[in-house]
C-alpha cells in the first residue's frame, strides 16, 4: 500500500510535465504522449465496480510497468474482463482511479480516445469485421487520423501499405489478404485480431484469452509473438490455459473476487497457499 501512495504522489507532482515529455517520439499522431517516467505505464488504483450490488471489482490495485509482459489469471468471475472493460473505458468504475502513464485519466476518456492514446484490446471472442477483407480489416485498424471528415478522403500511404504487408507476413495471413474476414477459421480470426492490434502501434496491448481455440502449434507461435512484442509494448494477457501462461509468463497476477490475491513469478504464485485454496479448495461463496 505504501508503494501505491508514493507512486501516486510522484504522478501528481510530475503531472504537468507529461505532455512535453515525448522522448520516444515515435507516435506523433498522439497529442498526449504517455509519460512513463515513474516506471509503470498503467495505474489501476483502488477500483471498485459493482453491478446491482455484486462487486465485480473490489478495491483492485494493479500496476503494469512499461514494456512488461504480464499474465493475469483467476477463476471465473474473478473480474478479469471487467478490469479490461475499466481500462478501455467500456465500464466506468464506481470508485478508484485508472491512469495511463502519469497524466492520462482513463476514467475521463471514451473508448475511442483511449484506443487512440495507445491502448489496444483483443476481445475474448475474436471480433473482426466479417464483411471486409483481411487487408481492409488491417487498414481500418491502422494508426491514422480517425475522424469522420478526414476518412472521407483518406487514402493509404505507401508507408502504411508497407506496414500492413509487414504485419500480414508476421501473422501468416498474407495469402488470405483478399479473403473476407468472415470466412477465416477461428484461429485465423484470432491472428487477424492480433494483427489489427499491431498496426495500431499501441503502447499497451490488452489480450483476452488469445489462444482459445488454437492448436498447440498456433499457441507456440502466439506465445512467441507476445514475448517478442513485450519490451517495445506492454502486454497484458488474460488467460485460462496454465500451460500457455507458464510458457510466456515472467510475472503473474492472480485475481480473486475482484481484487489481487497474489502476484509474482509463476512458481511463487503456484506455491501460494491462498491461490491453491482458491483454485483447488473452492472458497465458500
Amino acid at each position: 500500500m505504501n508503494g501505491s501512495v508514493f507512486k501516486r504522489v510522484g504522478r501528481v507532482l510530475r503531472g504537468q510535465r507529461g505532455a512535453t515529455n515525448a522522448a520516444e517520439g515515435m507516435h506523433t499522431a498522439v497529442p498526449n504522449e504517455v509519460d512513463t517516467t515513474h516506471g509503470p505505464i498503467l495505474y489501476v488504483e483502488n477500483v471498485t465496480v459493482s453491478f446491482d450490488g455484486f462487486k465485480a471489482l473490489n478495491n483492485l490495485t494493479l500496476y503494469i510497468d512499461d514494456g512488461e509482459l504480464r499474465c493475469i489469471i483467476g477463476p471465473n468471475g474473478a473480474g478479469k474482463t471487467t478490469m479490461m472493460d475499466v481500462i478501455t473505458g467500456k465500464t466506468r468504475p464506481d470508485t478508484g482511479q485508472v491512469f495511463f502513464g502519469q497524466t492520462m485519466d482513463l476514467t475521463r476518456m471514451t473508448e475511442y480516445q483511449i484506443a487512440a492514446a495507445g491502448i489496444g484490446r483483443k476481445f475474448q471472442k475474436p471480433t473482426v469485421f466479417p464483411e471486409h477483407s483481411v487487408f481492409t480489416n488491417l487498414e481500418l485498424a491502422m494508426r491514422a487520423d480517425k475522424r469522420v471528415w478526414t476518412s472521407l478522403t483518406a487514402r493509404l500511404s505507401g508507408e502504411q501499405r508497407y506496414r500492413i504487408d509487414e504485419v500480414l507476413m508476421t501473422n501468416g495471413l498474407n495469402d488470405l489478404r483478399q479473403l473476407y474476414a468472415g470466412q477465416l477459421s477461428h484461429g485465423q480470426k484470432q491472428w487477424l485480431e492480433i494483427g489489427m492490434l499491431l498496426v495500431q502501434s499501441p503502447r499497451v496491448l490488452l489480450v483476452d484469452e488469445p489462444v482459445a481455440g488454437m492448436t498447440h502449434q498456433e499457441m507456440d507461435q502466439t506465445g512467441e509473438l507476445l514475448t517478442r512484442l513485450a519490451g517495445a509494448h506492454s502486454v497484458v494477457v488474460v488467460e485460462h490455459d496454465m500451460e500457455f501462461v507458464r510458457s510466456i509468463a515472467r510475472k503473474v497476477t492472480v485475481l480473486h473476487e475482484g481484487s489481487v490475491l497474489a502476484e509474482g513469478s509463476m512458481d511463487e504464485v503456484q506455491n501460494d497457499a491462498r491461490v491453491i485454496e482458491v483454485y483447488l479448495g473452492g472458497a465458500p461463496c
Binding site: E111, A116, G120, F123, P130, E131, A141, K146, V148
Partner: peptide, 21 residues
C-alpha cells in the same frame, strides 16, 4: 471511401471499431 468502410465495420462489430479508435 474509408468512411464507408468504417461505417460497414460499425454495422458488423461496433465495439471492435470503437476499440481501434
Amino acid at each position: 471511401s474509408k468512411l464507408g468502410r468504417v461505417v460497414v465495420a460499425v454495422r458488423d462489430a461496433e465495439d471492435r471499431a470503437r476499440f481501434i479508435g
